[in-house]
Design a protein around this nucleic acid. Structure first.
Lengths: 186, 186
DNA sequence: TATTTATGGGATATAATCGTCTCATAAATA
DNA sequence: TATTTATGAGACGATTATATCCCATAAATA
């Protein structure tokens, strides 16, 4: 175990991370000052936790990855339509994190490690799609690269619906499941 | 008619606008120096054409709006599935402009005029969707707000496919049409 | 060809942002 | 309660971006 930390430190860091995800998604050029204000903490405190803008973004990316991987872990053995149905249920509430991973990780200089992680994620999704094609759950005439792009955009659309319209994540996931499958199946 | 302009002036302005759309989409915090460099012109020339950063963005937004409206004008009398099919064919190649309008217009202070234009665009899309529901082209059980969000995300996915995978716009439009309709129809 | 006009590069002033530091205060821990 | 630790506010240079000006050159127009 890591040593015990002061409550305040944990709380500040959490506030910074959550505000960072939110603010950076809506404005990818947001300054650390913007994020500190959104987190309700002082500018100096921000710099005590994160030396640079890049350090913050890397930490956020790591947390997003951990959250998404942990959430998806229980369904690792599912295939086809059932897998995708669960994925929507799981990822719509985590839409901010998933979006950060797929869209905002290019805010920092890309090192080997992150390039590998990104490639791995894309490959996993494509394997799932190709496998779904073999069992007849996805139309084989649609290129996998389209299905994966379409999947990500539909997932993001569902999350957007939750954010801007206040629709429950479970409802948004249902719409996304319906539109994604009908849009891909034979 | 407006008076005749020097070739170079027209050319510089065009280069600035095109570079501005491209650069600002990939990095919304790009400086005027970045854009001038991408346009292949000097910094001074940039300021001769646009007094401020805000003026440039407003001009770009206006041009994007004009381009999109002009391109959509011929199909103003179409309804339902046919209307949406044509919209995809028209807007996928104009994806950069449409994306600028839907995502980047908040880079400038929002005045009455632009808020109205934005509201108008959303309302037009929703009317088209509601009308398509009445003639049976779109499933009535799906909320209009979902269909409109889903439409924009699918359109953006198609444009992304063109940008990052080099797939022809006509092919990407076909995938988008298929997935959007199957995903929305009864 | 002569004149007008637009351009690039450089100099400069102003403004905004970044990152570091100090100090007094408040909260958590022992 | 006494001590340690984290915080907010503000001051401070360093860096970067914004915006204006001048001048020599090149291109377009008449």
């Amino acid at each position: 175990m890591s040593q015990k930390k002061d409550k305040r430190k944990v709380q500040s860091e959490k506030a910074i991370i959550e505000a960072g995800i939110k603010v950076l998604i809506s404005n990818s050029s947001a300054s650390l000052t913007d994020i500190a204000a959104a987190a309700g903490i002082g500018r100096a405190t921000m710099y005590r936790h994160f030396d640079t803008r890049e350090a913050l973004i890397r930490t956020i990316a790591r947390i997003c990855l951990e959250d998404v991987e942990a959430a998806l872990e229980p369904i690792a053995d599912l295939r086809g339509k059932m897998a995708f149905e669960d994925i929507f249920n799981i990822l719509v509430p985590l839409g901010d994190r998933y979006h950060f991973l797929t869209q905002l990780w290019r805010l920092v200089e890309q090192d080997e490690e992150w390039a590998d992680i990104n490639t791995q994620q894309i490959d996993d999704l494509k394997m799932l799609i190709d496998d779904a094609k073999t069992i007849g759950d996805i139309k084989t005439e649609l290129p996998t690269v389209w299905v994966s792009t379409f999947f990500e955009s539909t997932l993001y659309a569902a999350w957007e619906l939750v954010q801007s319209e206040g629709i429950p994540a479970s409802d948004a996931a249902k719409f996304a499941q319906h539109s994604f499958f009908k849009g891909c199946e034979k």
